[in-house]
Design a protein around this nucleic acid. Structure first.
Length: 351
DNA sequence: CATACGTGGAC
DNA sequence: TGTCCAAGTAT
């Protein structure tokens, strides 16, 4: 139930969106939209999964590479796991890539390659949560679902001057966002709020002077914009340490290890090594004359800092244990490694 | 409800 | 350099 004030806000947002919508590879143009066309659900799904906790700038090239290599959900479903993980390398949150494949295979097998259009059905697919289910349903299928992401949370908290901290305030913020969602163009409305949050109503220094919602915005009156949304404070990150072992055989092959599917960097290729903790024991993957490189790799994950020592040997033609993966010189691509492992490779190469 | 889960850019 | 943060999901 939208009252006149809510209609004014959503109309202002849509009008702003029509003038300022950013070009993105997964969007269709205004002319096609006006002609009643919808974007390809496969492309909407792929972009939304890539965009989870990830900026548009970081996603763009990955999206283009994925859709060039796998133009349809059936093509992606048929891809070998290691190719998809390699293509995802560097984008982070690797559970997304594992769930991406599970989802593509479920859609191919259970839905004949056509994504379901309802929020409920989408929510049951791997890697699709409340945000992504609503986004696909609204954007690809024109369903009146309301998305609640970080942008929408921020815009709603400021528009209504809500001081209750996240994540507890989510239900209230969702309620406010739902009240604004129009029956027509719900997908454009969703993208309009998110674009506004990404370009105007930014976390640090919002451009209130050019905001289409500057008149109805309550936090602008109160002067509380940059204090909102409030969030519960985060825990400090501990520092952990580790050893990794970079070995190359005489013919140029690299000795790597496929990490287990669960946990940090799950399913990705990496250098064998120690545990990562306060004081890890050295743990060479096979006996050899290992030398520690000078320098170290520093990397920060979501919840801890990591300092890695890099070891190498030029005598890697010993017996290589079965659980390791030997990748020949011409097949090895540093770009298939997650960033922390690529940093170790860079240090080794530059020794 | 809290925690695990990546990375790069902005300030 | 350190901290925050981004179109979140799974457990």
């Amino acid at each position: 139930m939208r009252d006149s004030a809510e209609i004014i806000v959503s109309d202002a947002l849509l009008e702003w969106y029509d003038r300022h919508a950013r070009e993105m590879p997964w969007r269709i143009g205004p002319a096609d939209r006006a002609a009643g066309m919808r974007p390809d659900p496969y492309r909407v799904w792929l972009s939304e999964v890539m965009l989870q906790q990830t900026t548009v700038a970081a996603v763009r090239d990955y999206f283009l590479r994925f859709t060039t290599r796998w133009p349809t959900v059936q093509a992606l479903a048929a891809a070998p796991d290691e190719q998809v993980m390699g293509e995802w390398a560097g984008l982070g949150y690797y559970a997304r890539a594992r769930n991406l494949l599970k989802c593509a295979r479920a859609v191919t097998q259970n839905y004949d390659g056509r994504f379901p259009d309802s929020f409920e059905a989408l929510l049951n697919l791997p890697g699709i949560g409340p945000y992504t289910a609503a986004a696909i349903s609204a954007i690809a299928f024109d369903r009146p679902e309301t998305v609640l992401d970080g942008n929408v949370e921020r815009v709603m908290a400021r528009l209504h001057d809500i001081h209750d901290p996240l994540p507890g305030s989510k239900p209230l913020l969702k309620e406010k966002a739902s009240a604004l969602t129009p029956a027509i163009r719900p997908g454009d409305y969703a993208q309009a709020v998110m674009d506004l949050g990404a370009t105007i109503c930014t976390p640090k220094s919002p451009a209130c002077g050019i905001c289409p919602l500057r008149d109805p915005c309550q936090s602008r009156v109160a002067g509380t914009q940059t204090d909102l949304p409030r969030k519960t404070p985060k825990k400090p990150k501990p520092t952990r340490y580790g050893h990794v072992y970079v070995a190359q055989s005489a013919d140029g092959a690299m000795v790597l290890e496929r990490r287990p599917d669960k946990g940090l960097l799950g399913g990705m290729l990496g250098w064998p090594g120690s545990e990562w903790n306060d004081a890890p024991a050295e743990r060479p993957p096979f006996p050899a004359n290992w030398k520690m490189l000078s320098g170290e790799v520093r990397h920060t994950f979501t919840h801890f800092h990591l300092i890695l020592r890099i070891w190498t040997t030029d005598a890697a033609d010993h017996d290589i244990p079965e659980h390791l993966t030997v990748v020949d010189k011409h097949s090895f691509r540093p770009g298939d490694l997650p960033t922390v492992m690529r940093k170790a490779y860079d240090l080794w190469r530059g020794q």
